[in-house]
Design a protein around this nucleic acid. Structure first.
Lengths: 212, 212
DNA sequence: GGAATATATGGCACGAACTGCCACATGGCA
DNA sequence: TGCCATGTGGCAGTTCGTGCCATATATTCC
């Protein structure tokens, strides 16, 4: 079980440079705004040229949303660990909880993530980019369900169902995150509570609409 | 009941200029891509300066998504016409159908809209902007429900419920639109059918997840 | 009708986000 | 040590988007 120590010097340097860019960028985003911080300033802080910055990140948004991507990957990994026969929404709900719990056995790692969340929520210029990630993530979630399904070929109806579950779920999480950002609380526990409320309300709301 | 003929010459000219920009822009988007068509080309086609273009539209995205905004307004107006005591999802479902039917008593107006939809769906650079509109629209939908509610002050739970309904609904519509764009059909009727399937599946899916 | 006023437009300079290209430096490997 | 792959920097150039000021066109008041 040796860690892959086969990480060459080159790769180590790249990893460090990348992390340095992320750290500097988020520090600047915190101090000033996302919009007002220039790529030039970030590059200078990380001691790389602007050209090199764009070799690590395709655009300014990407470095801002790196933590979000990380969380997405974590959730996807958690989803894959769920039993294959579990209903989509149940699995997704369990997956976020897993991901958030993994990040915060002590409650601190999740805070590290939520610390990035607020500035992202405030920066309206990032809203579009955030939604792009959400859509991409939703597609990957949906893919898990059609692949995990019994049918061999992806029938259109199955596809729709899987996408529906994924995107309704993501909508609920987003509503929760937005509500949490809008509130004056910065306690990660509140975020979890709000998310659970939303996910549960999803079911109730749906049923009442169905009955009406 | 005289039409407001009090539209001054200035306003008429502005309206014409605005429409001209939109028309030229979408024609160019259709011929080339969204990304490759420059604002300069659009402005030249509409016979205005680039500076004037940016007085009519804050950015290139805005002119591309003008038809989408129009559809959003139509749906919102249809929603307001629904009875106040109708459950959110029921009202929303009826509202889109109304909006789409209004646009297409003959089936042609809706086609005019769907014609714009495909290029928008293809242009990945627009995805973020699209999602921005969706979020803004979702908030306005949600506002209708908390305002129309019996309670005077907006309780947090009510807010969450209203947002949830709005965004789950929008998620379903988006899944349908995306599926329709991905399919080789360009028949508006198929879009309507897919949307209905999604909205119905939303309920079924939810129930099964609830039972599991 | 004509002067005073408001508003729309155009042109210019400028900042910031990216990109392509080429020269150079640095790490990996025989 | 020397060769090759790859990472880096600099520079010119394109596009989006904004502030500023001069000018042209509409509106209003006399």
């Amino acid at each position: 079980m040796s860690e892959q120590q086969a990480e060459s010097l080159r790769e180590r340097k790249k990893r460090r440079t990348r992390q340095s860019i992320i750290d500097v960028a988020h520090a600047l985003f915190h101090d000033n705004d996302y919009d007002t911080t220039t790529v030039e300033a970030i590059a200078a802080g990380a001691e790389v040229s602007v050209r090199t910055f764009f070799r690590y990140f395709a655009n300014k948004e990407e470095v801002a949303l790196a933590p979000l991507d990380e969380m997405g990957e974590l959730t996807l990994a958690a989803l894959r660990r769920r039993p294959a026969d579990e209903p989509p929404l149940t699995a997704l709900r369990a997956a976020v909880l897993d991901a958030w719990t993994i990040m915060s056995p002590d409650g601190e790692s999740l805070r590290h993530y939520t610390d990035h969340l607020l500035p992202i929520g405030k920066a309206s210029a990032l809203a579009g980019a955030v939604q792009n990630r959400v859509v991409a993530l939703g597609d990957r979630f949906a893919l898990e369900f059609v692949e995990g399904d019994d049918a061999g070929g992806p029938q259109p109806r199955t596809d729709l169902h899987a996408s529906l579950a994924a995107f309704a779920f993501l909508a609920a999480v987003q509503v929760a995150v937005r509500a949490w950002c809008a509130s004056d609380s910065n306690d990660p526990a509140d975020l979890v509570a709000t998310a659970l409320t939303c996910l549960d309300s999803l079911v109730v709301e749906r049923n009442s609409a169905h009955r009406a």
